[in-house]
Design a protein around this nucleic acid. Sequence first.
DNA 1: TTTGTTTTGGGACGATCGTTCAGGTAGTTT
DNA 2: AAACTACCTGAACGATCGTCCCAAAACAAA
Lengths: 187, 187
Amino acid sequence: MVRLQVDGRKARGEKRRTEIIAATLRIIERDGVAGVTHRTVAAEAGVPTTSTTYHFSSLDDLLIATLISCARDMATEVYWMIDRARSRGSRGAEEVAGLLAEALGPRRGRTMAEYELYLLAARKPELRPAARRWLDVLTSMVRHDDEVAFRVFLAGIDGLLIQGLIDDEPPSADELRPVVDYLLKPR
Amino acid sequence: MVRLQVDGRKARGEKRRTEIIAATLRIIERDGVAGVTHRTVAAEAGVPTTSTTYHFSSLDDLLIATLISCARDMATEVYWMIDRARSRGSRGAEEVAGLLAEALGPRRGRTMAEYELYLLAARKPELRPAARRWLDVLTSMVRHDDEVAFRVFLAGIDGLLIQGLIDDEPPSADELRPVVDYLLKPR
DNA sequence: TTTGTTTTGGGACGATCGTTCAGGTAGTTT
DNA sequence: AAACTACCTGAACGATCGTCCCAAAACAAA
């Protein structure tokens, strides 16, 4: 018989799976990948310890699933960033500078988590497609009048973010805007 | 009595201390910060486990000492890079592109270790001065005709490195040169 | 030599780790 | 109803972890 509704058991399982992933991401934001254990994740998600081993065959599996999910979110955020920046025309730099300041301020933990994905992907090849996704989204959305300038822009964004993470105080959008302007200015 | 020679015991201790730090760095290059334990470090250095706890009051202390030492090496390397790039005049871009390709190729493990320092420094404020040292060296050595262009250059270098770490194959100096050229070209 | 200081290293403690297992529950199919 | 499947979970195992303790060795100062 063809069932239109999904198996209720599988539905609950899938829901818990995503809850565990969300809890893992919260822990990475707070304590880094080093803080991720079956027990800390289970406690954060409010589930028994064995639940994380049931839904993920190993701790590595859990980490990989979490960071892939994180990368997917990042890609869609980049998508909407481009969309907004376009609608603001020549003030795209302001939009970008604002988002960078946000990534280094209120969303600092998330940004650190994303760069831990980067480094984990450097060591685990299976994570690289996920880590590259936001780069791919940007590349596919932007017109390439100048390939080199575009690569400089991508590298500059990454560099500003990672350098901003070790500043004692997160840089403001006003401090970032001239640099972003320089990055976006055609020549 | 004033002794010109150092205490032989302290000398040996200091030597073993640096050996432990070197072993720790090798482990970070190979397995990342996650692979660092008192026992793995001791085995790599060929010393008993308790030796690492004697010379470093905690595992955190060992990590901090290692990454500070790593940052100091990086700063002196940057110093000589600038020196060589200057002596090559307008071909400084070639020098920089070559060093980037080297950092992403043969010295890939070391580069990953350096960025793990970055992320550790993002979470541990006491590491930030060490992590910023190579930026400071560059900043102090280079004439600031254009502050913004210089900041773009620094960010671009960082971005190229971290993006190169998740490439399936490390980029060659030839691929990097146009981007570095664009970064260095005055306007 | 005697006394004091620093380094060395074997052994062990309690804590925490990843993972397994077996029994129990809830939902689906026949 | 029974049979089957998928999810849940408490308990526990062996391994490994950071760290401490203490006696021996090496060296310096008296």
